[in-house]
Nucleic acid binder design. Structure first.
Lengths: 120, 120
DNA sequence: CACATATATAGATGGTTGTCAATATAGATG
DNA sequence: CATCTATATTGACAACCATCTATATATGTG
């Protein structure tokens, strides 16, 4: 039961240890998904997402900047990365712009991780 | 109800739009988590993880290489990244090394995403 | 023991990313 | 309208990353 599939006689010239596995993610899907994960693969962006998720749709850039030792353009850049990847939506409210988390995307990512757990 | 918290009189010199939000992730936690997400922020590594998750602990490197147009050292590198981040464990089984997915880590990541959804 | 196969390591290189300073835009208000 | 505040854009630079080629290690087999 703990033996490798190659313990079976090989007929082809090219060895095939476990020929039964097939990619479920095609290249395009995997690339898209990688871009999505990349957007939250930065400590500052994770913390920004953390902050925004607590704000009930009422968090502006200046609320965020206050928590970091980074310049305004850098925070603006990170917000853009999160927005472009679909993690947040931003809406102008007079002078400031309020941000909120896109719950659907986070939920979809949880589904992907779940698939990798089950193997099916 | 849809008004910003700054609609309240300001007493300090520095404006505070939404002073109530606080980071729940400290810098170390966020950095660690970012490294973890970074490991799956690459299309090839996502596809490798996908393949390994289907193999029931019986997938070797050669099973993986076959699915990509990449050299063996490159696949070996990606496997190392996944292993170092804790996504897979690898066990020598004679000539080959069989890989399996670390379900606990995937589950923990789902918990993080869940926290970002709820805001609590 | 010689050789084939699976995997790892080292070093080089081109591409991407995070950050900053400087500047621009645009809404609100005295 | 002049000014302040919030945000975006641009361009530069250093750090990091993915990939390759070449080579090494180690296990199994004739």
């Amino acid at each position: 039961m703990n033996k490798h599939i190659l313990d079976v006689p090989i007929l082809t010239t090219r060895t095939a240890c476990n020929p039964s596995i097939r990619p479920r993610l095609n290249t395009d899907e995997a690339s898209q998904m990688a871009l999505t994960f990349k957007a939250i693969s930065h400590p500052v962006r994770l913390q920004i997402l953390d902050l925004i998720s607590q704000g009930d749709g009422l968090v502006c850039g200046c609320d965020i900047e206050r928590h970091f030792d980074l310049t305004q353009p850098t925070i603006s850049h990170h917000l853009k990365v999160l927005r472009d990847a679909g993690f947040i939506t931003s809406e102008a409210q007079g002078v400031w712009i309020s941000h909120k988390v896109n719950v659907e995307l986070l939920n979809a990512l949880r589904g992907v991780l779940s698939m990798m757990e089950n193997g099916c």
